[in-house]
Write a protein that binds this DNA or RNA. Structure first.
Lengths: 340, 340
DNA sequence: CTGAAAGCGCTAACAT
DNA sequence: ATGTTAGCGCTTTCAG
């Protein structure tokens, strides 16, 4: 392994100058920098991250916390994060938080304390008070996607507003009998996203003067299969049948689409369906949805964290304003005015 | 940040003993070990990874190379890898290789040379000769999932055999007119998986004395949408119509299922469909498939690499036998004997 | 089984 | 703008 000393000798300068030239910290004349860079290149020198980290306290590595790796939404956000970080020369260390509480503890108590990372991005993870306190104590900058996470820089989309937009689209088309597939009152995952979406849904209805109807609610687990079964129940029920379905996620919306098809209902003629998320399959199913640009969320978080890190050199602290993430209604082919 | 010195003082031993007690290397009396461990615990001490790495040359960190983060197969393999590594106390640093050749170079030339990782797992990545040579030179143990990758420890599933099993299932049911959705002759992604699957398909047919029929081949891009359109073309064609479809991936098989439904063909009564992979949606669609256990692939690779790493302490080198990965036919509801 | 001390390879004052 | 040098916090001989 070629070390900084060899490069210094080869370029005819001191190791300090090599360090300065290669890291861009401190002044080096253009000529010297060129000499050092070409020396490094021809010797194949790459700085040892452990030595550099130990001496400087910087790792050029960001820890990313995810709840699941194999679910579309999270892996898409992660994908955005990874490319933004790599683009700026940072490594990314992945911590997958499983259901196992003990393992989760070890991530916070051990893994993140090894001083392996300069900062942390938490994707859709609700942090406990002691976890947040632990990060503060470590002085580890952290940014969360999805919130609120009190006391943390947070990028979050207004789930209620998203749901209002989706519901508003249905109302504008003229629908009045709109079913809701999503949150069950008792069961709520990260940050009550399902609940917020239900609240947005109800606000939109209320604004249009439509009272909520319990018979038009069906809980589901945010999967295609869950949406499928919920829609089956909804559409198979005797009595009032909805003209539209609001699904609190695209995957459930797709499930609902498949259920409608199976029951012989035409979409959008007999039934409109709207989803939320911006799922990759939405295009194929012609699904009308409210896109929350998950890839972009990951990129933004990465950029925000790196900006914060680089700003720390200048100003030590900095206020934490929760920033709002964008979303947009994408009208495709699964929504239309009700018949009649 | 509490350091090893404080722990040593607190426990009344030297820093060397603390290091030995905590790392498990070298002999320490049980009593001393207990004392050190409880000292470390009560002080909240965690070893600094950069200091430890610099001194020992070990990082307890594994680099994982993936082609895409947001595609089901890769993120599932990654998920298996991540949990296996974390279980054994290793961090995982993620390198996502995009289409950008320049960025790919930088991963091999720079990122992997920072001495941040003890070993590398390459998921479904075809490595160039100079890339493999670079790893050897760095003396970085590497294990690949999917192959062949000459000169590298490789875990690989026999794609032709997998396809033979899937096709054999259809033949056993009595099908003779079997269409193939998959490889286009010219376009082939990682390791010619599509081609190998097509070859396995043809071998099975040949073994049954059935000659290949060009009109029953439809190329597709391994997505649901691609499978959908391929099946549409296949089933909409005048003349001979297949009684079964072999799709070279579950996603294409699901697309074919949706196409068949849309065209009014009942599955499996009018048409049988078999896929390959073991996709999470397979259960929902009742898809008959050959599962290749992607999560397990990730776990195996991680365990194999760590075993290799730990064995390196004892024996320096070790032969690289490409190991075969398991697969299994899962018969669900999309296959049945042809009518008549 | 334990301690003393010499580095691991680099960075950051401090000089010049 | 560049060189000198003292660490960064641990691990690992080498002694005992």
């Amino acid at each position: 392994m070629v070390g900084i000393g060899e490069v210094a000798r080869y370029a005819g300068v001191s190791t300090a100058t090599v360090s300065r030239a290669l890291s861009g910290r401190g002044h080096v004349s253009a000529a010297t920098r060129d000499r050092v860079e070409s020396a490094a290149r021809s010797l194949g020198y790459v700085v040892s991250s452990s030595a550099s980290s130990l001496a400087s306290g910087r790792t050029r590595n960001i820890g990313v916390l995810v709840p699941f790796l194999d679910r579309w939404f999270f892996s898409t956000v992660l994908s955005g994060t990874a490319s933004a970080l790599m683009r700026r020369g940072y490594d990314i260390t992945l911590y997958s938080l499983t259901a196992d509480r003990e393992q989760r503890r070890s991530v916070f108590q051990t893994f993140l304390r090894r001083q392996r990372v300069d900062g942390v991005i938490a994707i859709s993870i609700e942090l406990g008070d002691e976890e947040i306190a632990g990060m503060r104590e470590l002085n580890l900058p952290m940014i969360a996607i999805g919130g609120p996470n009190p006391g943390l820089s947070t990028l979050t989309v207004d789930d209620a507003a998203v749901a209002r937009v989706a519901t508003g689209h249905l109302l504008t088309l003229g629908h009045r009998d709109i079913a809701h597939i999503g949150a069950s009152p008792e069961f709520d995952i990260d940050f009550h996203v399902p609940t917020h979406r239900r609240q947005g849904f109800e606000q939109a209805l209320a604004d249009a003067g439509i009272p909520p109807r319990p018979s038009l609610y069906e809980p589901a687990d945010f999967t295609i299969e869950g949406g499928f079964h919920a829609a089956k129940r909804l559409l198979g029920r005797p009595g009032e049948r909805p003209t539209a379905i609001f699904a609190a996620s695209d995957e459930m919306a797709i499930g609902a689409l498949l259920a409608a098809r199976e029951l012989g209902h035409r979409v959008p003629e007999d039934l409109s369906v709207v989803g939320i998320d911006g799922h990759e399959l939405g295009e194929f199913f012609r699904l009308t949805t409210v896109d929350q640009f998950p890839m972009g969320q990951g990129e933004r978080a990465a950029d925000a964290l790196l900006d914060e890190l680089e700003a720390m050199d200048a100003a030590p602290a900095r206020p934490e304003t929760p920033r709002a993430l964008p979303f947009a209604l994408i009208v495709r082919g699964t929504t239309a005015p009700p018949r009649g």
